[in-house]
Design a protein around this nucleic acid. Sequence first.
RNA 1: GCGCCAGUAGCUCAAUCGGAUAGAGCAACAGCCUUCUAAGCUGUAGGUUAGUGGUUCGAGUCCACUCUGGCGUACCA
Length: 542
Amino acid sequence: MKDYLKTLFEDASNKLDYLKINNAFFTIPNQKGHGDLSTNIAMILTKELKKNPREIANEIIENLNYDSTIIEKIEIAGPGFINFTFTPIFLSKIISQINEEKSAFGTSKKYFGKKANVEFVSANPTGPLTVGHGRNAVIGDTVANLLESVGYDVDREYYFNNAGRQMRVLGESVQLRYKALLGETVEFPEEYYQGEYIKEIAQLLIDEFGDKLLSEKDETVFKSKAETEIFKEIKATLENLDIKMKIFYNENSLYEEGKIDYVLAQFKEKDLSYEKDDAIWLKLTELGNEQDKVIVKSTGEPTYRLPDIAYHITKFNRGYDLIIDVFGSDHNATFPDVKAGIKALGFDAEKVDVLIHQFVTILEKGEVVKMSTRKANYITLDELTASVGKDVVRYFFNMRSLSSHLNFDIDLAKKQSEENPVFYLQYAHARISSILRVTIEQDLHASFVNFNLLNTEAEINLMKKLHQFQNEVLYSAENYEPHRIANYLEELAASFHRFYTECRILGSEVRLAEARISLVQAAQIVLKNGLSILGVTAPDSM
RNA sequence: GCGCCAGUAGCUCAAUCGGAUAGAGCAACAGCCUUCUAAGCUGUAGGUUAGUGGUUCGAGUCCACUCUGGCGUACCA
């Protein structure tokens, strides 16, 4: 619908110069009676043209050379809105299109040929993923899905560090548990990793090596076993949510390949770093940030900023047109430094978009659960997925905007009752499958010839909703807003359920019944395509 | 102190570069199954969009200040 109006306005701009300057902007009015699409362009132009908006609107309409089989009416309303109402027969054409394009409906090729990298989760292998990581994981994967829907070639990437202090502590934790399991009395410091999984890893080492490792001087063996086991589990956790990373990028390789030294040398050469108190500082104030920051500590170890900058440079060098980082809000202070560093080294920081999502608050029995990996006070993502199912987890984390805090009520999610909106969508899909099973038994088949019979309000509303899908996908992808898809699908499902209640297929006259079959098929395809973007299954029965 | 995010119906949240009468779900109340899945549908009720001021044809949305909450503000990541 929007596309048609856009071409109409483009044509008209040959006669009305002022239409060239403005991109016509169409919205769906939230009020019934205000048409199917509306534009406020006349009001925007008021100042520039120094004319009454309704006058401008009139002039625009006179110059729109529209097809009356497509547009039923155009009205000027309120202070100067131009409202467009489409003909039912035009609306119904979407049914054929959807049935032809099937799973491709909603996708576009707008960004075809572009490469994107979406980095997410990126938790260091110090313990199982928690519910807190779940939001990051689901958002990252869904944004990747959205980008693929609009044509991007997307790589999903997980960045990790297996070298730092935390990992050392992890190794030592395993080592201590190992000794304890073999009967030695050990003191287990409070700041070490308390989780049960540490003991399990220690047990694996006993199974494998017996007590031979008691003589190990340092934690290396324990650390590397821990890393292997924990990563195995992390990957399994992600796969339980249908998330598959393409690349696991090890921070350590940046050192091994000299990329850290290179960046350091670059900063020095550009006179962007200096030494003070035995540390190396980056002149971030010169780059427009608040204060200079340390990039190499006096111990000789870099701070996270240096490898992060080097890491992002590899992304540029790997040829990505779009680079997305998904972070929790606890990282919101880190990226400005990194971005400034990248920019200073001559890379186009505009290609990098950082998605900061707010924290998940876990509620159990009405109480807030404070989470800490180290203290082993957490609910794992696996436990959650096991208890409520992949679909609920994915839907729940996708249904809110990133910037909004998310309350995850464990008890509510476990309920699996009608309070859970994901079932509403899946139910719509399953209902359609059921209809299609029955109609086939009755030898009724989809027909695309009598769409003029689809003229009740419920049918027309459903067709209008179907029209919206392509724009929703594009808009959600370009703005990284998975929750819009969830909201859209709830509206679509509502339109369908209303249709289902008011319009029957069995018992209707054959031509009408068969036209309705093609309509519900179209609705089912769109539900399925939308759910698939969210990573939620579309069941055929419930 | 400073920075980022938020504050919208009893609860959880939407609201498309600022648009028309701020919308859904859940919870509450009243109805709808002899016919394609009632995990559904219809209706009622529920609001000074935290507050104050400003910008303009028009503000939940933009600006300023205040209040409340989350996260940061490291030679941790």
